[in-house]
Each structure stands twice: as structure tokens, then as C-alpha cells.
Amino acid sequence: MTDEISPVSPAPQDDTELAIEGALRPASLDAFIGQHKVRGQLELLLEAARLQHRTPDHILLSGPPGLGKTTLAMIVAHESNRPLRLSSGPAIQHAGDLAALLSSLTPGEVLFIDEIHRMARSAEEMLYLAMEDFRIDIMVGKGAGATSIPLELAPFTLVGATTRSGMLPNPLRDRFGFTAHLEYYDAAELEQVVHRSSLVIGVDLGPEARGEIARRSRGTPRIANRLLRRVRDYLLVHQVQSDVQAVSAALDLYDVDAIGLDRLDRAVLDALVRKFRGGPVGLSTLAVAVGEEADTVESVVEPYLVRIGFMGRTPRGRIAMPEAYAHLRIPHSDGGLRFDDL
């Protein structure tokens, strides 16, 4: 992909969040910014399927939230000229739910299952046969009189998305013909995302203003687009120029600091450094200290803090790294344990 911005459709007339969200999603691999290796691999896979007049192989997309897994599934359907069916793992809690979904697919349809690792185990086992042989077995009756009736399915392409690929059982993972892991975006790629999105929603931002949003977006396009919408609101209400000062003021208003930390991120860091002297401290104890669920701290806050080197995970608990003290402007003490002590 070249560095130039792909043409985009005009801003939607119905200015709702749903309409804007749809407009911000690119419709082709050429318009998709970032993930160069994955885009090249998908392009090859889809072109090979087209030349052989068959449905594309099943695709598994893994990676942190907000990097474009759902968008890529939509692009697979669009570029294959196939209809798309959307579902999610939590919605498939019984084998019967999956059987009803699979039996209603049309030939060549693309089925997207988000958070596929959260499907019920009975549904996962049914999916094995469906992916491999396009067939499922329906059990009729109970006890000794129960019989299995095979049901042929139309050929389909399954696109699974997961934020925790390690939770997928090996038999399911092995049935995907192509697996890809999406990586966080760098600042230059995020600036392209912000540029494209600003054209869609009608906000005129200069390079410095776009860069400021990109730097605070935690390597994630979804966050970049969300911050851009908040900047748009700020500019509209205050009627100010769309320069870097206005962008900074808007993001500061929403408690997003210069490196993308929000209120909860700073609360976790502050508790870790001040209350627990840098750790180590258990996850549940840290979560109670900031008034959040442990799952929220582990899945929303912790990954970014670990990635930027502010927090460390050890067998004895979470610890604050020197960079966290510097960011909070707190003198580094020798009270907590460090990696060298473990």
C-alpha cells in the first residue's frame, strides 16, 4: 500500500454514531491502513480462491481490541462478493444455536464470529465437523433411542476473531486455513487513520493536530477514531480553530494525557506507586484499591501499561517500573521490589 490516502465517501447525512462508525470502516484492502503483512496475505488468499472459483479458506484473526478484526471480516466478504453474517461467541451458548446459524447460511456466505473463544464447548465441537466437511450431526431423541442425523451445509467461509487466541482449543485452531495476528499501530500509521477519518466526518486537521491525536491513541485505530470524534465535538461547541492547541485542550478535557493514559490508567499507577510502594501487589487487591473489577484492570488497563514499560508482571504480583514514577512525577523510592530482586 502507498502512503497516499485512499478516496473516501462523503460524511454521512445521518450524523449518528452508528452511521459514522460505518463510514469510517474501509471497504477494501487497498483502503485499509496498516497491518501490511496481514493485508498482503489476505489479498493472496482471496485472489487464489477467486481464480479457483471456490470459497476462501477459514480465517482466524487474533490480536488486541480495536485493531480492525471486524473490519477485515467485512472486507473479506466485500472483496469475495459474498454476503456476510455477523455473530459472536457469547451469543452461541448451545450446539443448537450454532446448528440454526450454520443451516441458514447461503452458499459461499462469510460467517464472522467475534470473540470466538467464548463459544460454548458443545458448539465448538460441532464447529469442527462443519468447518472441515461442511456437515453437522443433529441428535434426535434421548437415551438409547437417540439417533444422529447428518445435515449437509452449504460451503461457507468462517472468519473468527479473538483477543485471546491461547484460549482456543487446538482442534479448532488447526481447522483454520489461515491465521493472522494483528499488531499495534505506530504513530505514522495512526496519523493516516486520523487523516482519513477526519475527511469522512468533515474535520479539517493539520499534520500537527493529527499527530497529537495519534500519539494519544495507544496504538489503536478504534481509540484514534473515538478521540477524533471528541475533538470534533469540542471544535463544534467552542468554535475554535482546529489546531494542535485545540486538540490538546479537547483531549485534556476528557482526561487523556500526552501518552494516552486515561483516568483509570493513572488511578491504577497511582495506587501501585503510592499505596503499595511500587509492589508487588496482587491483581485483585489492586483492583479493589481503584474500585474496579479485576477483569477490567487485567484486560483494559494492564496490557497498555505493560507494553509501554510502566508496569511489570511477576510471579509475586504487579510492580511499578521506574518509568511510571517519572510519568507521575513521584521520586523513585527503594520501597518496592524490582525485577532484580525476584
Rank of each mutant, 00 (worst) to 15 (best):
R25N: 03
V38W: 07
L251D: 12
S122T: 14
G309H: 01
A130V: 03
Y184S: 14
A11G: 15
A180E: 05
G309I: 13
P169F: 10
E298Q: 14
V288N: 15
S103D: 06
L236V: 04
Y128E: 05
E125T: 12
D243L: 06
A271D: 10
G336V: 05
P171H: 12
I259G: 05
T55W: 00
L72H: 10
A224S: 07
V301Q: 11
V306Y: 01
F178H: 11
E298N: 13
A188E: 13
A326R: 14
V8M: 11
G66V: 06
Y254T: 12
I259N: 04
I319A: 03
L127W: 01
E21D: 12
Q93H: 08
M74N: 13
G22I: 00
V8P: 09
Y254P: 00
G66H: 05
R85E: 08
G309F: 11
D97F: 08
K142T: 15
G34I: 11
R338V: 13
S6V: 11
L127F: 05
G336I: 04
A49N: 04
P155E: 00
N81G: 12
I116V: 15
F176R: 06
I113G: 07
L205T: 10
P322W: 10
R313T: 06
A49D: 05
T55D: 07
R175L: 03
T147E: 13
G141N: 06
P56S: 06
Y234H: 14
M131L: 14
L101P: 08
I20M: 10
K142S: 15
V76C: 08
V288A: 15
P83G: 09
F310K: 07
H53Y: 01
L60S: 07
I136N: 04
H238D: 02
L158G: 06
P12D: 09
M321V: 05
R277K: 12
D233W: 01
L199T: 08
F112H: 06
L42H: 03
T220K: 10
N225P: 03
A123K: 12
D233L: 09
T55N: 08
L227R: 04
I319E: 00
L29T: 12
L182Q: 08
G34L: 07
H327Y: 15
D15Q: 14
Y254W: 06
Q239I: 00
L84R: 02
